[in-house]
């Protein structure tokens, strides 16, 4: 009896191992990752722990926009086609603020920091998840901001801003944040 249960568990385990191995291998390869590699992975992960209060139907893809100079180069390309909350991710690079409507996740590049107020106003109004590595981004009304503590990249969250934008943030994500503005 017990041996059969063990055998079942073993088979299950083997299956799980096989599935995860492919994913694992790519990650092992990127064990020593560049800053923006990590940030790109974080960006995707944020989308998975943040919910949009008025979500469009699952058929509509989740649009990730990079506003300003793209620091990721092609590092975000692997995100295309992956899913968050069942929605397929797609990538856009609007060149100006005016082109950014329709975005769901907005990465604000360093280059746009002087126009930040206007961008954040619009983004909040349009329920976008704003992410940036501009220093004190969250203090200025951004929702998620990358911070660097030593060599480790962490993030801060402005829960108030998220509330204004109509976003709910998973508490698990909040637990991981270096700082949460409430």
């Amino acid at each position: 009896m017990r041996t059969r249960i063990r055998r079942c568990l073993l088979n299950l385990w083997k299956g799980l191992l096989a599935i995860t191995l492919c994913v694992g291998l790519s990650q092992v390869q990127a064990s020593v990752r560049s800053e923006y590699e990590v940030k790109a992975a974080f960006l995707y992960n944020f989308t998975r722990f943040i919910n949009w209060n008025q979500p469009p139907s699952e058929d509509t893809p989740l649009t990730v926009c990079v506003l300003g100079d793209d620091p990721f180069e092609d590092l975000l390309d692997p995100l295309v086609g992956r899913k968050a909350h069942g929605r397929v991710l797609q990538l856009r690079t609007p060149s100006e603020q005016t082109e950014m409507s329709g975005c769901h996740v907005l990465f604000v590049s360093e280059s746009e920091r002087f126009n930040l107020r206007a961008i954040l106003e619009q983004a909040t109004r349009q329920g976008m998840l704003t992410i940036s590595d501009i220093p004190d981004f969250t203090r200025h009304g951004g929702i998620v901001g990358y911070v660097k503590q030593g060599n480790v990249i962490r993030f801060e969250i402005n829960l108030l801003a998220a509330g204004e934008a109509g976003l709910t943030i998973n508490s698990r994500l909040l637990e991981l944040a270096a700082k949460v503005i409430r």
């Binding site: 974080f42 992960n45 722990f49 998973n170 698990r172 994500l173 637990e175 991981l176």
Partner: peptide, 10 residues
């Protein structure tokens, strides 16, 4: 598992 999912991801 539920608690550690986010921590694992990050």
């Amino acid at each position: 598992a539920e608690q550690s999912a986010a921590a694992l991801l990050f």
